[in-house]
């Protein structure tokens, strides 16, 4: 080990700079804090992503449940049975109106429950039938089920009556 003689000025220069140390340490701390912050954000997002994915799954399940219910309710088997419970009978005697020539084609005749070739109650198997229409003659007459037709004044429905053309009903 050797010892040198230096002037007071030089000694001052050789003293470690407090400033440099401060910058270094603050810089390091800032980087670390930044990294922690970034990590926290990312991790938080990961948890949020997970919870959103779970929510998406739940909603998809919900959609599936509702879709299955709708398919079941709109299946022809359910409709045929529901109509039959209401006492409705299929009427093969259709009558057509020609609005161009003001002619009526076919003879209007009431549907008969007996002796029809067309079965009114469902005869076609469907084991996927889950939800079924609740209305029957009893429930409808007691007012448990409200049956109403919503009318709309919206002219953009695409149903424009043209001469000589009766538009097909959009319902089925």
């Amino acid at each position: 080990m050797s010892i040198f003689m230096v002037s007071a000025n030089e000694a001052k220069k050789l003293r470690p700079s407090l400033m440099a140390a401060a910058v270094l340490i603050i810089g390091l701390v800032a980087v670390l804090v930044g990294q922690i912050g970034l990590n926290m954000v990312l991790t938080h997002d990961a948890y949020e992503l997970r919870s959103l994915k779970l929510e998406k799954r739940d909603l998809a399940t919900e959609v599936q449940i509702i879709q299955e219910e709708v398919s079941s309710l709109s299946s022809p088997q359910n409709l045929a049975d529901a109509a039959n419970r209401l006492g409705m009978v299929a009427n093969p005697a259709s009558v057509l109106l020609d609005i161009e020539s003001n002619k009526i084609y076919g003879k209007p005749s009431p549907a008969k429950a007996e002796g029809q070739q067309v079965a009114s109650a469902n005869l076609v198997a469907n084991s996927a039938l889950g939800a079924i229409s609740e209305f029957s003659l009893a429930t409808v007459s007691s007012g448990e089920v409200q049956v109403s037709v919503e009318t709309s004044n919206n002219s953009d429905t695409g149903l424009v009556l043209q001469s000589g053309f009766i538009p097909a009903s959009p319902t089925r």
Binding site: S74, S75, Q77, V124, A125, N126, L129
Partner: peptide, 8 residues
């Protein structure tokens, strides 16, 4: 697989 209309 689901066949909503059954035997149709």
């Amino acid at each position: 697989r689901l066949y909503p209309m059954g035997a149709v």
